[in-house]
Design a protein around this nucleic acid. Structure first.
Lengths: 223, 223
DNA sequence: TTTCCATTGAAAATGTATTTTTGCTTCGCG
DNA sequence: CGCGAAGCAAAAATACATTTTCAATGGAAA
């Protein structure tokens, strides 16, 4: 194999977590994962340690690893924070972006637009999730603050964990494609206020779509 | 020992890194660290993996781990971001803090005020660094956004790496104690604007103190 | 003399085995 | 019949051995 085993496991486990393939709070048994990926426990532990620092999994000393929990409160907090950071990034990207940035945004939007959203199981298709993340990343990428981008990436990753919950209630009545187009057009027009407004609405609407489904899931668990 | 070996190594390595005991870019040999802490290489690897995700060390596949680099550009970026986040936290803490918060702030300030700054080697004393971190943490702690606090902690940790560089140029001509007192008083007076102004000045002054020393260190390395 | 290739050594990555801890179950006692 | 303690099994943590990879040095050829 080209990359190291730890790296491979880390990346695969990460996309699985972001895609919601493991239930929050679910126990992540090291030996099970080891046989699933057919690598040693050491590689698994190392990957899990990195994911722990990222906050995607929680480590309980002597008691193993679990998938990080989700909650309505966390979603709201996360959304608020995302609006803050994403809009700041966007403003700086618009002020700072060159032609290459514009081209990358257009390219990413095109890929996103032509990728079907739905997967066979009713959730988002993996390729759409990827294209969606790439589009938002492309928008922010021209921001000239490495720290801001880094925090943005962290927040965006955590947001992805909530995304697949949205699909169940989001029966096509939300025109995400329209929102993405508006974002791109405002960015290319170099209209910061319009772009920020679009971004704020977009992120807020994501929360509004996810929250009911999440709330239902929470009460289901209790009852 | 009570905690796990990995946890112990992680914590100790972290404070060592924040205290600047390892030179930036320095190689962190796993076997050396293993014998130094007298634990196996596995525990070291796991601790380093977590620190990598935190950004305090960088991992190069098949080439081991290094202490994360520092630079003037990073310091400026970091400072800008810190001002954004710390002031936001502070506003929310002031709006949200109760009596327990006030008490904690006063207590932390007292500990900070009575702790001598200088260590024997001319750098900051470890106890002062701890008290300083605790004071700033206490100020922010009443902020009712877990994500904001988390990002704040991350940024503050990285800032600490630069702190010891400041000591060399900071020949007592900066009245840090005065700045901390002003911060506390503004917070207790529940005056957000005054507190934010004090915080902005405080963080900016830290950068202004560090940057010359850092710039000199950088040119020294090249020359 | 310089450059390129090969060999060698050191260090990291991985895999396996052992120890320790924890949580559960069962058995005994009240 | 219920509560508690002890033992047992599963899983995590750690130590150790093996394999792989990278880099540096030395030698040979141009």
């Amino acid at each position: 194999m080209s990359a190291s085993a730890t790296q491979t496991v880390y990346e695969q486990l990460r996309v699985s977590l972001l895609a919601g393939q493991y239930r929050p709070e679910a126990k992540l048994k090291i030996s099970e994962l080891g046989s699933a990926f057919s690598v040693s426990t050491g590689a698994i532990r190392e990957a899990l340690a990195r994911l722990t620092a990222e906050g995607l999994v929680t480590a309980m000393p002597q008691r193993g690893f679990r998938v990080a929990p989700v909650s309505v409160a966390d979603l709201r907090d996360l959304t608020e924070m995302r609006i803050e950071i994403e809009t700041k990034c966007l403003r700086r990207a618009i002020a700072n972006g060159d032609l290459a940035w514009e081209a990358a945004v257009v390219a990413a939007h095109h890929r996103l637009a032509v990728t079907p959203i739905a997967a066979a199981d009713g959730g988002f298709s993996p390729t759409w999730i990827l294209a969606h993340g790439d589009f938002h990343a492309a928008l922010a990428r021209a921001c000239d603050s490495a720290w801001m981008l880094r925090v943005r990436d962290l927040l965006f990753a955590h947001n992805e964990r909530y995304l697949d919950l949205a699909r169940k209630t989001d029966r096509g009545n939300r025109d995400a494609a329209r929102e993405h187009r508006e974002l791109m057009e405002a960015a290319l027009a170099r209209d910061p206020d319009r772009a920020v407004a679009a971004m704020t609405a977009h992120i807020g609407r994501t929360r509004d779509t996810i929250e009911p489904a999440l709330r239902r899931a929470e009460t289901d668990e209790v009852g």
